[in-house]
C-alpha cells in the first residue's frame, strides 16, 4: 500500500486500473443497460469536458468552440470506417481510425490555435466560436461526403480487433472506459508536470513570464493542441457509440455542454469536469424521462450551483473536506 501514498504516475495508473476493474465488476452486479449507457457516456463527455478544462481551468482561456474538435474526431472516425481502407486493414481498422481521428483533430487544433492563441479574453472566445461555426458550415456544405444535415448516413462496420468486438455492449463498455481512464491518467501527468505549472503561471499572470525568459504563446499553443486532440478522441468514441456523426456535434450548443459540466463539477479540481459530466448525464436521463422542460431544469440546477455553492460540486466538496 506504499504505492498509494506517493502522488506519482505509478499511483495514478494503479488507481485508474482499479477504478476500471470496479466498473467492470459493477457491470455484472448491475446488469442494467441503461446504467451502463450512462456510465460510458459520462466518461466520453467527461473526457470532452476535461480537455476543455485544460484551457479554462489551468490556462484561464475560455474557449467557446471546443466542439469543432469533438466533431472532427467523430467525422474522421466515421468517414474512415465507411471507406474501403477497412477492407484491407480489417482487424486494425478501429485502432487506426481512432488514432487518425486524434491526429486530424490535433492538426485542426494547430491551425485554429495558431490564430486564436494570439488573442485574449473575449476576443479569443469569439474567434474560437467563429472557427467552430465555420467547421459546422463546412460539414453542412459537403453533403456528398458528410451527409449534410442528415449526418453520416448508413452506419459503418466495427471490425473486431485483438478479440474486442465493439458491437457487443460489454466490449464497448470496457473498451471506452479503459481508453478514457488511460487518457485521464496521462492528462493528470501533464497537469502535474512542469508543463502544467507553466499553464498555471500563464493563467495567474500572463505578463510576468516573458520577464522570466518564457514564451507564453508556444506553451498556450501546445496546450490548445492537446485539448483539441483529447476532444477529438472523445468525439471518435461518441461516433463509435452512436455508429454515426451529426452536424449538431459541431454546433455552438455542443461547445456549451462541456462548459456546463465544468461549471457543475468545478474547474479547480482535476476531476471536477468528470463529476460535472456525471451530474449532466444523470440530469439528462432522469429529467428527459419525466419532463419536456430539460433546458429549464438544467438552467435552474446550474443557477443553484453558481448562486448557492458559488463553485462546482467537486471544488466545493474538496474545500469542505480540507477545512475539517
Amino acid at each position: 500500500m506504499n504505492l498509494l501514498k506517493k502522488d506519482n504516475f505509478q499511483r495514478d495508473v494503479f488507481l485508474g486500473l482499479l477504478v476500471w476493474f470496479m466498473l467492470i465488476i459493477f457491470y455484472y452486479i448491475l446488469p442494467d443497460p441503461g446504467i451502463h449507457d450512462i456510465i460510458q457516456k459520462v466518461f466520453i463527455l467527461g473526457l470532452f469536458a476535461m480537455s476543455l478544462n485544460i484551457l479554462i481551468g489551468y490556462l484561464g482561456l475560455i474557449a467557446f468552440g471546443h466542439a469543432a474538435f469533438f466533431a472532427s474526431g467523430a467525422y474522421t472516425l466515421g468517414l474512415f470506417l465507411q471507406s474501403d481502407f477497412v477492407l484491407n486493414l480489417a482487424g486494425f481498422s478501429i485502432p487506426v481510425a481512432i488514432v487518425l481521428a486524434v491526429l486530424v483533430s490535433s492538426i485542426l487544433a494547430t491551425l485554429i490555435g495558431v490564430i486564436c492563441i494570439r488573442l485574449k479574453d473575449i476576443y479569443f472566445s469569439f474567434l474560437t466560436l467563429a472557427f467552430q461555426m465555420l467547421i459546422y458550415s463546412i460539414i453542412l456544405a459537403l453533403v456528398n461526403i458528410t451527409g449534410g444535415d442528415q449526418g453520416l448516413m448508413g452506419g459503418f462496420p466495427k471490425p473486431p480487433f485483438l478479440g474486442i468486438d465493439l458491437g457487443k455492449p460489454f466490449d464497448f463498455y470496457a473498451f471506452t472506459i479503459f481508453i478514457s481512464i488511460i487518457t485521464i491518467v496521462l492528462l493528470r501527468q501533464l497537469i502535474e508536470s512542469p508543463f502544467g505549472y507553466g499553464l498555471r503561471m500563464i493563467r495567474d499572470n500572463s505578463e510576468r513570464p516573458a520577464a522570466l525568459g518564457f514564451n507564453n504563446q508556444k506553451h498556450k499553443l501546445i496546450a490548445f493542441i492537446i485539448a483539441g486532440s483529447i476532444a477529438g478522441l472523445a468525439g471518435s468514441l461518441q461516433a463509435l457509440l452512436d455508429v454515426g456523426a451529426y452536424p449538431e456535434w459541431a454546433f455552438w450548443s455542443k461547445s456549451a455542454e462541456p462548459l456546463f459540466m465544468i461549471l457543475l463539477g468545478g474547474m479547480h479540481s482535476f476531476l471536477g469536469p468528470l463529476m460535472g459530466a456525471l451530474i449532466f448525464e444523470i440530469l439528462n436521463d432522469f429529467v428527459t424521462a419525466n419532463t419536456r422542460y430539460y433546458g429549464l431544469v438544467l438552467g435552474l440546477v446550474i443557477l443553484c450551483f453558481v448562486l448557492g455553492l458559488k463553485k462546482g460540486l467537486l471544488d466545493w466538496l474538496l474545500i469542505k473536506l480540507n477545512r475539517k
Binding site: 504516475f9 501527468q189 502535474e192 508536470s193 512542469p194 508543463f195 505549472y197 522570466l212 525568459g213
Partner: peptide, 16 residues
C-alpha cells in the same frame, strides 16, 4: 525552470 527551458517537460512531477 523557465530559465532552464524546463517548463516544457511533461514527464516529471513538478512537486518532486
Amino acid at each position: 525552470l523557465a530559465k532552464q527551458h524546463g517548463l516544457n517537460n511533461m514527464w516529471n512531477r513538478f512537486k518532486a
